[in-house]
Design a protein around this nucleic acid. Structure first.
Lengths: 152, 152
DNA sequence: CTACGATTGTTGCACAGACAACCAGTTGGA
DNA sequence: TCCAACTGGTTGTCTGTGCAACAATCGTAG
């Protein structure tokens, strides 16, 4: 029963941490500079765009973008103010609130996506071989399953 | 000249993001619960412990733990208050300040490290084959070189 | 049908971190 | 030698986020 990572895995872990920090900060910077859009806003727009009817309940959205309920409440306040999303009550559960992508929000996402995608290609994807890409995807998927199952 | 990642690389990117978020949050949680130590504090302690003389200049430390200058000033304020590090003027450059690991800080790190290492093993390393580990390390190292060189 | 526990979302509060302005100290060129 | 430009660090201020407490609503056991 091993309780510590070996040296090679620790090195992988460290490169993982640093790569994440550096790359996301560059991406954030570029998206902010070129499209004046925080990465958190972008994430929300993506999640909504990929959901049925372009809408999601607050709780589900919070889970998807990894924010606390209160954090999301405030974020959605701001994004409503900017007209990118709107709130609508759930007619079948009057406690619930849907967050819905507006057309302005959809347009904003369409406008910003190329910049973000270019960043992901330029600062991340281009450095990975096909084999490495597969290894990363498979390995991390397993890691994720592990963390998820821990909760239930 | 490709400007967007292909589907497999985008999938890898997404699993990368989510794995990072989930795993670090679990690690933070565990370290906080078992050793009452925020991950940022732990990072500072590790950086100092690995440095010559157990000391680092504010600016260098800020770079190492990826914090702004002001952010680090406040963090070190708190850690000084807790007695884990101390400040000392650089005699050769009177603008500069060293942050030095105290013995209490060293002990605290020795105490916390096994918990953190166990977490890295348990929630990350154990899910990766040798080949995946190598691919992650090599791929991300290249990614990092790319981001670094961008700055200079 | 009622009453109680669970769930949904918002609010008050506190805190960590970023940015910009600043001071003190250093360096290099006229 | 002196001054201008730069560097290292701290401070004021603001923003974003988490936690705990709350109100409203739901679902279910009795």
């Amino acid at each position: 029963m091993k309780s510590e990572p070996d040296a090679s895995r620790l090195a992988a872990w460290r490169s993982f941490l640093e790569a994440h920090a550096r790359v996301t900060s560059v991406l954030e910077e570029e998206l902010e500079a070129e499209k004046d859009l925080p990465l958190t806003w972008y994430d929300v727009l993506v999640q909504l765009e990929e959901s049925a009817e372009h809408r999601l309940r607050m709780t589900d959205l919070a889970g998807a973008v990894l924010l606390s309920k209160s954090g999301l409440t405030r974020l959605i306040d701001r994004m409503c103010g900017a007209g990118l999303v709107e709130r609508a009550p759930d007619p079948f559960d009057r406690r619930g609130t849907y967050v819905i992508l507006t057309t302005a929000g959809y347009d904003r996402l369409q406008d910003a996506a190329p910049v973000h995608m270019r960043g992901v290609e330029e600062h991340f994807a281009r450095y990975l071989s096909d084999a490495e890409t597969a290894a990363i995807h498979e390995g991390f998927t397993r890691v994720l399953e592990g963390v998820q199952s821990r909760l239930r």
